[in-house]
Amino acid sequence: MDSGERGRLVRILLVEDNPGDVRLTREALREGRVRNHLFSVGDGVEAMAFLRGGGKHKNAPRPDLILLDLNLPKKDGREVLAEVKANEHLRRIPVVVLTTSKSEEDIVRSYDLHANCYITKPVDLEKFIAVVKKVDDFWFEVVKLPPE
C-alpha cells in the first residue's frame, strides 16, 4: 500500500466523542488505499492538548489531517477550529469537518472559521465508508500538502 510521499504512515487526528463513530471511521479507513495511523480524542480540550503536545500528549506527533466533529463535550468543534486556524503552527494542518449536522448555519460558520472542507456524515454505512475513503484518497493522493 502507498503511504504517500512522506515515506511513513500518514497521521490522522479524529476528534469525535462517539466511540461507535470512532470505530466506524477506523474501519472505513482500514478499507482505504492509504496506510494511516489514526489518533482519536473524545473532546475539544483534549484535541487542543494533543495538538499542542501538552499533558499526557507530550510526545504526540503532529497530524497530517484533522477530522473534526462539531458537537463535542467541554469545548466544541467550532472553538477547536477557531483555535487551530488562529495558531500559526497549526493553521496549515487541513481540517475536515465531519458531522451529522446539515444546517446551513454550521456550514457557513465552519467555512468562515477557515475549515478546509465540510462533510455531512451519511447515515447509510456504505455511503459513509465511501465518503471516508474519498476523503482519505483526496487529501493523501490528490492534494499536495505543505511540508512539515
Binding site: 462517539n18 466506524l24 451529522t100 454505512l125 459513509f128
Partner: peptide, 17 residues
C-alpha cells in the same frame, strides 16, 4: 433517535459486510 439508530444500522451492516 436517529443517532443511536444510525449506530445500530451501521454495525449490523458492518457485520453483514
Amino acid at each position: 433517535l436517529q443517532e443511536p439508530l444510525r449506530m445500530v444500522a451501521s454495525y449490523v451492516k458492518l457485520l453483514e459486510r
